[in-house]
Design a protein around this nucleic acid. Sequence first.
DNA 1: AGCCTACCTGGGTC
DNA 2: AGACCCAGGTAGG
Length: 335
Amino acid sequence: MNWNKLLCNRNELQLLGTLNGGQSFRWTYNKDKDEWTGVFSKTVWKLKHTEDCLHYQIIGSLKKPPESNIKAKTSKDMYKLKYEYFEAMLKKYFRLELPLTKYYDEWSEKDEIFKAACKQFYGIRMLAQEPVENLFSFICSQNNHISRISSMVEKLCTFYGEEICEYDGVKYYSFPDVNKLSGSQVEAKLRELGFGYRAKFIQKSAAQIIEWGGEEWFDTLQNMKYKEARQELMKLCGIGPKVADCICLMSLNHLEALPVDTHVYQIAAHNYLPHLRGKKNVTDKMYTEIGDHFRQLYGDMAGWAHTVLFCADLKKFQTDTSDTENSKPKKKRKK
DNA sequence: AGCCTACCTGGGTC
DNA sequence: AGACCCAGGTAGG
């Protein structure tokens, strides 16, 4: 199979931070080959980044390029059509039309802390994910570890998605459609699979979304103002302020949405809002204050900027803990 | 409105 | 070895 490629330098895209930074849970890295394998848009992708190009392969797909009007379809024409179609999907997923280096410069100018943090964390992109996958993945994320979230997302795909292809002895599945998750037996099955109390949230939210128009409901959310879309999402069972903001930011194109979780709270309290230090948990009031602070600082793409900071705070990306340990919560020992 | 606490589960810590 | 704590939170009181 041939690699296709797109011009894209390292400052414009870093695959590690973007694909393994807690936005999507479906990418795996092959260290020996320096390749990423993952699924989005019912398509299995393989990605690799060299100095100035993003290389990609289509391993398998349930999607078909639209029929063209070209009369003489040579195999070369067909090949070209196919790859134009998939390349457009890839560009959209990574938002490659947006000039990231320019944004980094702007955020650096507005904030010295960002300027220092971003050096090691160049090329962190906000993916344009599919709302359905994004929503159900982040229902799974609550009060949970990334390793367990990933395994739960894979279970959803294996049990309720469609098989796309088999490659190197591994079967790949699409993320399920909403109606597949809305069945009355879904909660019991997910409980059995170890989803815990999230099982009910998934089934109830899916049923509610179907009632409100299915996947088209997400289109209406995209066209709303951020705050309105957020309010609508929070009407679903299992979606609170944080997950609603994740969905707004990651799949509804509301880039000012800024999810405040324990990490972001720690960053904010340590570096920006000292009066919030030492609180036991994030109240609604604090949540709003932290979000508004960053929106005021970075402007209308604050959520993207915050994701870069979030990445810099994630333990797995830290090569040296000495410069960041103060941003970590102190271990409490209770006897 | 704003502050508690229970909640499934699995991995890490002491 | 066993009882904690904690994890990209949320619903219900």
